[in-house]
Design a binder for these strands. Structure first.
Length: 303
DNA sequence: TGATATGTTATCTT
DNA sequence: CAAGATAACATATC
């Protein structure tokens, strides 16, 4: 799912394809996703791309930013100059040309394409979203943290790229403070964006397995040693996800039309009834916590 | 056919 | 009152 590593992967590609290019026109077909303000983007040149948790910001040289949350099923697809040759287009991409196989490399606006950004030199950036949970907001770049509720409330972020550290890095000290100050279920806490930015269901499941901690534990019950182990585990699974270009379990694809491969390396997520490949003594169980699928090994994850 | 999946938010409950 | 738990959102897929 689009969590920190997936959105970071998208960010890197948008940097490559968009920075230095001018947005000439924006076509909005779904006001539910893109409420207003697209005219403020037209004629602006892309300065830089930033990521805050699972949110992206495309900053223009005219003082405006397009802030994008793709939620569960949003896709940002780029077609135009500089793509690898031949360009690829995953079958997971929605909204292709009706009647043409989805693997055709010429993405075109379709049923699930709700926004199209037209760029200079013929480039296009499509926003597709089957479920329309995502959103795009136009905000003055200087007001990003003030006006965008989501970014303002975001908790500290795990550092996965030392060259590009987040504004509010999640240090071990901060992590211990967050975990030690509540009785909430540890896995639900990890996914709370106001506590820790960027971790979602897949990486929360995998980090808890890696740290050998039961997802149902009360956060407060973790020993100092377990706190440190979990902190390291979170960084490790996020880095692994990033290394593999994210997890294309559902509809996640990258702007160049490719899929990530972390889904082939899930540690615990989605492994219900499979034998645990660490202890080989039990099969993964599945329960629901905070309304989300939770997978764990009943033998090697400690209560 | 209906249960299920996900991230966030609105709303309800303790 | 505030923290926490749960329903709602929309729709393809199993």
């Amino acid at each position: 799912m689009p969590e920190l590593p997936e959105v970071e992967t998208i960010k890197k590609q948008l940097e490559k394809y968009l920075v230095g290019h001018k947005i000439t026109k924006v076509e909005v077909r779904a006001r539910k996703i893109f409420a207003e303000g697209e005219r403020n983007l037209e004629a602006g040149k892309v300065n830089k791309i930033r990521r805050f948790g699972k949110v992206l910001s495309i900053d223009l040289d005219n003082g405006y930013s397009a802030v994008i949350h793709i939620k569960l099923t949003g896709q940002l697809i780029y077609r135009g100059p500089n793509l690898p040759n031949p360009a690829s287009l995953s079958e997971k991409v929605v909204g292709g040309i009706p009647g043409l196989p989805a693997s055709a490399s010429q993405m075109q606006a379709g049923k699930h394409t709700h926004v199209t950004f037209f760029l200079d030199k013929g480039g296009k950036l499509y926003y597709n979203d089957v479920r329309k949970f995502g959103w795009i907001k136009i905000i003055k770049s200087s007001n990003l943290k003030v006006k965008s509720d989501f970014i303002a409330r975001l908790g500290p972020e795990p550092v996965v790229d030392k060259k590009n550290p987040p504004d509010n890095p999640l240090t071990l000290e901060k992590f211990k403070e967050i975990v030690g100050s509540t009785k909430r279920v540890i896995k639900v806490l990890l996914m709370d964006q106001e506590k820790i930015g960027g971790v979602g269901n897949i990486y929360a499941n995998d980090a808890l397995w890696l740290a050998r901690i039961m997802p149902t534990r009360s956060a407060k019950s973790l020993s100092p040693k377990e706190q440190s182990k979990l902190y390291d585990a979170i960084l490790n699974v996020l880095k692994e996800g990033l290394k593999r270009g994210g997890a294309s379990e559902l509809s996640y694809v990258t702007p160049d039309g490719n899929e990530g491969s972390y889904q082939e390396h899930f540690l615990a997520y989605g492994r219900k009834d499979e034998t645990c490949k660490r202890c080989h003594k039990a099969k993964f169980k599945k329960i629901t916590l905070g309304g989300r699928g939770t997978y764990f090994c009943p033998v090697c994850q400690k209560l």
